[in-house]
Design a protein around this nucleic acid. Sequence first.
DNA 1: ACTTACCGTAAGTTACGCCTTACCCTTGTT
DNA 2: AACAAGGGTAAGGCGTAACTTACGGTAAGT
Lengths: 113, 113
Amino acid sequence: MIADALAALADPTRRQVFELVAERPSPVGQVADRLPVSRPAVSQHLRVLRQAGLVQEERIGTRHVYRLDTAGLEILRAYFESFWERSLAAFKGAVEQVNRPEPSDPPTAEEAP
Amino acid sequence: MIADALAALADPTRRQVFELVAERPSPVGQVADRLPVSRPAVSQHLRVLRQAGLVQEERIGTRHVYRLDTAGLEILRAYFESFWERSLAAFKGAVEQVNRPEPSDPPTAEEAP
DNA sequence: ACTTACCGTAAGTTACGCCTTACCCTTGTT
DNA sequence: AACAAGGGTAAGGCGTAACTTACGGTAAGT
């Protein structure tokens, strides 16, 4: 879900957790050592990130190693990229149409079924 | 700021405001009519989005028309795209290096003073 | 000049999110 | 078997964000 991914990365600490894990797969304690928060806090952040599809877990012994999940990242990347093109298309001639009530949805037939 | 842009789009209502404005430049009241919140709420959301560099304002008579600001969107797009490539690079050979203590901080000299 | 339309801001309330401490579980070690 | 290492989870405190109502302010219309 795009909403979960955006909400997950909105928090600065949680985004740091995500960036650390994305740079190199790491167990929970190792991430907590690099941040000014407790280990349970990191664990909770990783749970949110996992539910958002941004990281995935792998148990190795007693350690829970988290690494990047490319699925969630791809969703965000695709969202902003498609948004970019769509915004440029809408930007073309829509500047002067402020007063128009509604053009009854002009041909924007780029929507996949 | 990447943090402001992400935090701005994290809220579902505010993201709806952003998407409506991005699709077609609109005054505040027109946006509020399409959402289940009051007009002041939309006004506050637009202020946050403007401070995040995601929308820009243009006064036309009594109407304050908001449209997309491509600057903020570009920041987000570039962030996730560069992140995508960086993640793939780090994904290559870092899987087996979980046990390694720390490569003594690899060159990440991207911090501005 | 008065009224109407459109909007931003202030104050207050409520709900949600982040963090900490405390506790329990699982796995590996001696 | 007992101990240690590594982590997830629960409960609570606390700050803050999102929304509402009320008010003031500017521009257009009559």
